[in-house]
Structures are given as structure tokens and as C-alpha cells.
Design a protein around this nucleic acid. Structure first.
Lengths: 268, 268
DNA sequence: ATTATCCGTTCGGTATTGCCGAACATTGTT
DNA sequence: AACAATGTTCGGCAATACCGAACGGATAAT
């Protein structure tokens, strides 16, 4: 859950501690954490932790909720995150295309970067429906449980897909999750033929997604987009229509990135 | 531009430096900053800065773009910002209402918290149009240049409005910006009668906004929402229709917050 | 080709500074 | 009212984060 702790030699310990602290706060329950709770979690002294917290509050990274002094995420985190998101090439460039797709499909839309075959979601636009889908942004996700993940995998050579599957482990999320390599490979085959990928309750029960990949100027798969909605009894044709809609918008992103459209042939 | 630097006695200097550094990176030009550039800006030594940067990179707060090692905002900032945003009561609770307003109006929609009469925008949902409006989230804004700002001001006693106006200074953004207290007060009067506020190119040329306030359980003004679009020749009635649409959605948020709808009478 | 700049990285030595622990203050609980 | 738990302040010491210099690599200039 917590971030990677590379043990590089030259590093600033107190800063590292501060960032871990921010992570604790941000993943903590809604009502926030008290100093005592934080001390219990981190093992540091009260005095030091207090100074640390004050520094983070001064910079707006945290805020204090009265009464009972509890620490909560601050406005600066929203500000910094928004600035970072705006600077992210994918999220910035493709927002209007995503908005358009969300409007046309009436569904929640997400976009992920390709991080060596793993998707990192960087933006999400909610559909008009009342159901809310929570995706964590900015986090490396497992590729086999999402339509975007499978769409990205489909652009890799078979060997690499198998290596990733072995490494990440094909963890089961629902009873429909793909948990064996043969099933994954045949699914990937289908994705390559269709040009888009489907996630039929493989990540969460009752959730249905359709995703497609896009490409950058070098022809590499830069990431993918997908629609997310609650599963309904839909005909094969309607799924196909949706798939083609998603693919069309993925191709639009490809164009904006100056890339060539997806190859029809299977990558070797 | 940089955040407030309260000079509290017990604070962790190196963490403070680290956060200032993040701020530098995040507000820097798109291509990022090199170590040398950062050193020039901060005045710290190369060695120390290098260790600092490495720590931030290890935690994903920054990433390095090759070639020419340049430092850019990292994925963790998006992740943290998204988590913080989801935990923000307003942003979390009202997203579906905002999405609905965006769909119905076809415009970009924003929501701000009331921070003692000043608006802090915490969420933004883009309309289907291709024009993009950039608002910084999580930052305390001047209240006299936005529709939300004026909607929030209108809920304060006159004395407080004048105090805020004198304090913040009524800075001019365009030729239409309200820059005198008398004009501001008469505008506020209008807002109170209408129930919604209008920003007619007062913040940026060619941009037209309509905003309304919402209230929490204690009856306090908790913030406001607004639509943003490019200015077109629109009839008085169409503006009024839009105003009522915005007000209706603001009232929905009031309900979700467990508040009472806006008072019809002018606050004393 | 050779030199000169500039930049990033490594590293030793030193003083700053951030940490610990204890004492004090404050809140809420039995 | 006394207690228990939490938040805050502070002195002293050791760790550590900074500085500055030196090295290596890349690019520009002569």
C-alpha cells in the first residue's frame, strides 16, 4: 500500500518521513488522525512528529479539524495534484476527447498511461448516472482486471504478456476474473481481433467496461481509455457499437499525440 | 505565488525546503527544470538539492525526464491530490450534481468552498465544448472577479464585504472588473435580489459565468457553484433561465449538506 | 582535435538541526 | 474532583543534512 522505499544512499531522511506521513493521512479514515494515532503508527516521538505536522500544516499539505485536533488532507494537495494533472501530457491533452466520449456514451470514462504494460490511471470523468465508481489515480494497477489493462497488454509481444502475468500474479477480484495464463492469452487474442477490450465483471461485480489503446508518435502504445458502467443485459451489437465508439475516441487521442493508428496485425 | 511561510518556531526546515521545491517544479514551465536551474532559484547547494530531489523522486513526487535530466511533477502528486479531493466533503458529495449541471447547461462547472468570504475552488467539470478554461484548484481566490465569489459575498453582512474588499484590493482583471466599493455593493444588492450572481467578462475577456451559493446544516454559506462559458449575445431571459438552473443545483447541494435553502431576506 | 564550460554526481568534514524524552498544559472521562 | 489520555513546549545531545570541492561526462567553442 505504501510507496516504494528505495534504499538509495544519499537521501534526506526527514523529508522521506514527512512524505510517508502525508501518505498515512491521505489514506486514513475520513475523520482524520490524531497526533497520538500517528505516533503509534510511525513509532516516532511525539515532539518530532508534532514539528513535522506543523510544517506540513503551514504549507497547506494538511489541515487541522477541530475539535480533538485531527489531521486531514489540506487544500495544497488538491492544488498540487491539479497542477500536476494539468502538466501530465495525456490528462491535459485528451480531456476534451474524454468529455466527449462521456457525453456520447453516458458513462464514466477513464484514461490510463502505459507503464511498461501496466496501466496507471491519470484522469477520470464521471457520467451523468448517479452510481459512482472509485478508481485511484496515479497508481500502478494490475493489468488483467481492467479493459484498459487488457487493451494495453494486447499491444505487447506474447512473451512479455506472460512475463507480466507471472510477475503480477493474476489476482482474483471476482469469480469472473481471468486467473490463468491460457485464458488470458485467448482473451488477448480476442482483443487483437476486435480492436477493443471488454471487462465483464472481472474487476468488480456488476461493473462492465470497454477499453481501447492509443499510440504515440513512435508507434508505441501510450495508454488506453475506457468506459465504465453498471452491467445491464445488453445485446452483442450494442457492446460492439460501444467498442467502436471507444476505439474511435482512442484513435482521436492517437492523432493528437501525433501517432499512427493501431496496427491491424498482431505484434510479434 | 509561493505559499505562506509562517515563521513558527518549531518546524522542520528541510521538509519546508522540500515542499517549496515541489511548488517550484509544479509551477515551472512544461519541459521541467534542471538541477542547475533549481539551484539558481533556491540558492541551496548542488549536493543538498540533489539529495532532496532524489528523495522526492523515490516517493514519486517528482519524475526525471531524459535526456538532460529535468525534473517534472510525478504520479504520486496526482494520486495524493485525487485522494485529497475525494476526502474533501464538498468535492466528493456534490460531484454528481455538478455533472448533471454540466450536462444540462453544456457548460464548464466549478465548485468553491467559502473560506471566510473568499472562494477556494475544489472541483471542476468541463463542458462538452472545445474551449478550455483553466482554474487553479485549492487556491484562495479574490472574491470580486468571479460569480461564485460574488454569490458568497452576498451572504455576508455589508460591513464584512467592505472589509474584504479593502483587504483584497479589488484588483482589475479586465476593463469590466468591479474596482470600487460602491459598484461592488450595488452588484451585491442585485445578487441578493436574483439569488444568483453573474460574471460578465469581469475576470477574463469573453468569459461569462453564472453562480449561486449553497448552505450547510448550520445555515452558513458553505460555498458556491458556477457555470463558465464563452460570452455570446444572449437574451436577458436566457441568462435568467441559466441563473435559475444554477440556483436549483446549488439548492440540491444545500439539501445534501443537510442545510436550509437560502434565505430570501437580506442578511443584516 | 583540443580546450573550455557547464552540468550532474559523489563524498568528506562540520555545525546545524532535528530528534528524543521529560515536563508542562489541556482536554475529556470516570 | 481526580485521573487519564492527548497535545504542546523545551533543553541537550547525537545524528544528519548541508556545504564545498573534486570527479566524470557531455556539449560547445576555439
Amino acid at each position: 500500500m505504501s510507496l516504494t522505499h528505495e534504499k538509495h544512499p544519499y537521501t534526506v531522511e526527514s523529508v522521506s518521513r514527512a512524505l510517508t506521513l502525508v501518505d498515512h493521512i491521505v489514506t486514513a479514515p475520513n475523520e482524520g488522525l490524531t497526533l497520538a494515532q500517528i505516533v503509534r503508527r510511525t513509532g516516532a516521538s511525539k515532539g518530532a512528529t508534532h514539528a513535522m505536522l506543523r510544517t506540513l500544516v503551514d504549507h497547506g499539505y494538511l489541515r487541522i479539524s477541530e475539535p480533538g485536533p485531527r489531521y486531514l488532507p489540506g487544500m495544497a494537495l488538491i492544488r498540487i495534484g491539479d497542477l500536476a494533472s494539468a502538466r501530465e501530457p495525456l490528462a491535459g491533452v485528451s480531456r476534451s476527447i474524454l468529455t466527449d466520449l462521456s457525453q456520447k456514451s453516458g458513462l464514466t470514462v477513464r484514461i490510463a498511461q502505459n507503464d511498461n504494460g501496466y496501466p496507471i490511471f491519470v484522469e477520470r470523468i464521471d457520467g451523468p448516472g448517479t452510481v459512482r465508481f472509485y478508481t485511484s489515480l496515479g497508481l500502478r494497477e494490475l493489468p488483467h482486471v481492467s479493459s484498459v489493462g487488457k487493451a494495453i497488454l494486447a499491444e505487447l509481444p506474447d512473451e512479455r504478456i506472460k512475463a507480466i502475468a507471472e510477475n503480477s500474479g493474476l489476482e482474483a477480484r471476482t469469480s469472473k476474473t481471468i486467473t490463468t495464463i491460457p485464458r488470458l492469452m485467448s482473451e488477448i487474442h480476442k482483443v487483437r481481433l476486435q480492436g477493443y477490450a471488454v471487462d465483464d465483471e472481472e474487476d468488480a461485480q456488476g461493473v462492465f467496461c470497454v477499453g481501447a489503446a492509443f499510440f504515440d508518435h513512435s508507434g508505441q502504445c501510450a495508454g488506453g481509455i475506457s468506459t465504465t458502467g453498471i452491467k445491464t443485459d445488453q445485446s452483442l451489437e450494442s457492446v460492439q457499437r460501444l467498442g467502436e465508439l471507444v476505439l474511435k475516441h482512442a484513435n482521436q487521442i492517437t492523432e493528437v499525440l501525433g501517432g499512427k493508428k493501431r496496427l491491424k496485425s498482431v505484434p510479434k
